[in-house]
Simulated scan of single mutants.
Amino acid sequence: MSNTKLIIEERAANIGNFMVGRLLPFRQKRMVGPFIFIDHMGPASLSSKENLDIAMHPHIGLSTLTYLFEGAIMHRDSLGTEVEIKPGAVNWMTAGKGVVHTERTPEYLRHSKKMLHGLQIWVALPKEDEQCEPSFTHVAAAEIPTWKENNVQFKLIAGKAFGKQSPVPVYSALYFIQITSSDTKTISIGDHLFGESALYILEGSITSDGHTYGPKQILVAKDSSLCAFEIEANSTLYIFGGESFEEERFIEWNFVATDKALIEKAKEDWKADKFPKVVNETVRIPLPAPKRFGG
């Protein structure tokens, strides 16, 4: 890990009634490969009177990847999808030219104590796909490629790496890998990666070049061959990245695009209630005051 270029600390952010740790975008690093936004949700212990309730909100120009460690979320969208996601599974929603969705605590959990913990990730779409038709795919936990090497557990949540391919239908060359070890081990996997690469420590720590890095840090590499390090016992980390896009990406609120005009149109369409609706949902999150990244 001697070629670490940047260390990003997790920062608190509020998404309505729920606090998350925001990892990307960061002032000095807007994207890692096609990954443009990462939130760490929880871990949160919710009482019988507390629930996740994210009302209707829109997206364009990206795919969302939801991956839970604990708890459950009911996803509903303007495509007519209604799917509960549980730990280890993947919800992959491609917004393209525009989609609307909600994320709520499932009905059967709303009046009991529960935990919620996971990652919310946005992956920018290639320029030629950013206005594609929206779609949704749910991939069950059992379908995600999982294997062991030297008593270290690997899981390829999305993309291609290690000669394997996740069934998550990504649009560009990328990887999102979970690594878990109950023992202290030396790991060298740079030959399996490509493009830009970053490492996020969920729990435990890693050691490289005499430096120890702990939870809630992202280490961004100078190149994809970053990954030679010692993972400490009882650690879980994520390596993500891939090929970068040639064009700059702009991000404002829930919108991502190569052209600011697409974002301005999406903002006006949301204010004018022109986006598609989610069945049986009536509450819409209003467009917030401008807060720009990447432009």
Rank of each mutant, 00 (worst) to 15 (best):
M1R: 14
K5I: 08
I7R: 14
L24K: 07
F26V: 15
R30W: 15
G33A: 10
F35E: 03
H40M: 04
N51W: 07
S63G: 05
T66D: 03
I73W: 10
H75I: 03
R76G: 06
S78A: 08
L79P: 03
G80F: 13
T81C: 13
W92V: 00
K97A: 08
K97Y: 08
R104I: 12
E107T: 15
L109Y: 10
H111I: 04
S112P: 00
M115I: 06
L116A: 02
H117L: 01
G118A: 06
V123G: 02
D129F: 10
S135G: 05
F136K: 02
P145S: 08
T146D: 11
K148R: 14
K148D: 15
V152C: 09
V152T: 15
K155I: 04
K160S: 14
V168H: 11
Q178I: 01
K185D: 05
K185C: 06
S188F: 03
L193S: 01
G195W: 04
L202G: 01
G204E: 04
Q217E: 12
S224M: 02
S235F: 05
T236L: 12
F240Q: 02
I251C: 13
I251H: 10
D259Y: 06
D259L: 05
K271F: 05
P276L: 04
E281S: 07
T282D: 12
